[in-house]
Structure formats: structure tokens, C-alpha cells
Design a protein around this nucleic acid. Structure first.
Lengths: 133, 133
DNA sequence: TAAAATAGGACTACTGTAGTCGTATTTAAA
DNA sequence: TTTAAATACGACTACAGTAGTCCTATTTTA
């Protein structure tokens, strides 16, 4: 409960790694070996980050990935949002299909949880990749 | 990912309910019917909250539950911690058995995530049940 | 043309979550 | 003293999301 997924962790490690290398092109192989991350899992995370335009891919031999913008313009929230794909909410109310919640109508804690949700988002949005290099 | 469990939600709703009734004794039946929560699931949550000394149980006919301390002395974090049982951490680093993490040694984001973990705990600890009545 | 890299779909195993069921125990009131 | 209403709690099932593997296609440089 309340855990970040491994995919998000891997994404953060990878983005931080590239930033720490002065945005030199880095390969999945290089990163996965250095941090003991399963190659294929990291590969898919990188593909997602590319589609989300947080990083840029360079295909073919000598290819790899570099950041698409400077590290101080990438928040932890950006990485989470893109890797997860779906809206990240502490309850269904703040994710897709809020009305599907089994207690939607009678729920008395939507508002307070909304405040908490907002505070959590602040925590993740205010920290930038440049701060963790 | 990053979701509260239904059990925690049910616990919050129940504790808030009792507080809103001026700490009158409330039964599982009453609460589960009012908020459309499965009776048996809520029952176990209440038993946990009792063992955690957040609420008091009154057994037998005319029994039920009341708060064990005043609503401004119960934080959202208290409810989460007791209902979950385990330490709540955004990664394995901040839960039980940190060393079991597959990337423990090479992980470069332990410290920044620690900061985030700390901020999240603040959010949950600073909000009290009295604020959500 | 070969090698090194990204792109991405299909599949499996595992774990945690939510919920159900059955039974025992406690206690107030009839 | 019996009955009914409540808590206590373990065992079990079903389901969904997570993590990881495998396979093949495509791109690009030397």
C-alpha cells in the first residue's frame, strides 16, 4: 500500500543516471548492468519515457537515450505520471472512473482525502531530477 | 500504485463516523449499512483498530465501538499504521526488510526517496480525525 | 552485411487485496 | 435461564496488478 512501483523506481534511476552523465547518450544495457535492473523491464520503461517526451531515443548502433529537457525541468511527478500511464490517485476518486467506487455516494472522506492527494502531488511535483543527481 | 487500501478507507470512515456522533457507541452493522461497506470486512478493521487501542470495543448485546481518545488526538497516520499493521513505505527501503530489495546496494535514489517518504508521513500525521468530521 | 541498439507484443508467475463463510464468545434484556 | 445481538477471529476463494521473461522486428553505424 502506498508503494511506488519498481517501474517508477527504475525510471527515476535511469533518468538520474543520464542527468549525472551530463546528458551523454546512455544505453539500456549500460544502465541495467550498472544498477542490476532486468534489461527488458528497463527497456520498456525507457520506451514509455520516450513516448512521454521526457527523454529522447537514438536508434541503431551507438544509439541510446538522452534527456529531452534539462534535469531541473523534470519533476519526480513527471516520471511517475509517464511511467504509470494512468492518473495516480490515493483512492479511486482521484483516478480513472471515480464513480465505479463501491461507496462513491455515501463516502464522507472524499474532501479530506482530496486535500491529502493535493499535498502528495505537491511533494512529487516540487522535487526535480536535478536535485537528486 | 500509491493507493490507500479499502481497509484503510473503511477505517477512516468508521472512526470519522463515531467522532461525528459525539463518540456515542456505534455498531459494525450500523456503520456498514450506512456507508455500504461489507459487514465482515469492516468488522475485521474494527478489531484491528481495537487491538491498536485507537478505539474501544464493548462486547455483547448493546455493544459496539467508541473512540479510545479524542478525535484531535487521532491522526490519519494512526489509522493507516494500525490497519495496515506493517510499516508504510513508498519503497522497500522504508518498510520491513530493506535489504531484500533487488537493487539495494546499487540504488542511487534512496536518499531523495527518503526525503519524499518523510514529507508524505508529515502529510498523514498532521491531519487529525477532528478535522474531517 | 553484420552488429548493436531501440520498439513492442505475448505470455507467465507471483503477490497483495477484497471479500465470504463458519464458528466461538460475550453480555444485556426478556 | 434462555435468547438475541453484538464482537472475535481463523480459513478460504477470487481477482487484479506487478514484475519479469521471451521472441521478433526495425533502425542505424561501421
Amino acid at each position: 500500500m502506498l508503494k511506488l512501483s519498481k517501474k517508477v523506481e527504475y525510471g527515476l534511476i535511469a533518468v538520474r543516471h543520464i542527468a549525472s552523465m551530463n546528458n551523454q547518450i546512455s544505453t539500456v544495457k549500460e544502465i541495467s548492468e550498472r544498477y542490476t535492473i532486468p534489461n527488458d523491464v528497463l527497456a520498456k520503461v525507457m520506451q514509455k519515457l520516450t513516448r512521454g517526451k521526457l527523454i529522447m531515443s537514438h536508434q541503431g548502433a551507438l544509439g541510446g537515450y538522452s534527456l529531452a529537457r534539462s534535469a531541473d525541468q523534470i519533476s519526480i511527478m513527471d516520471v511517475i505520471a509517464i511511467v504509470e500511464g494512468t492518473t495516480v490517485g490515493i483512492t479511486q476518486c482521484f483516478s480513472e472512473e471515480p464513480q465505479n467506487c463501491s461507496i462513491f455516494n455515501s463516502c464522507t472522506i472524499k474532501n479530506p482525502l482530496g486535500k491529502i492527494q493535493h499535498n502528495l502531488e505537491n511533494v512529487f511535483t516540487s522535487m526535480k531530477v536535478s536535485e537528486i543527481v
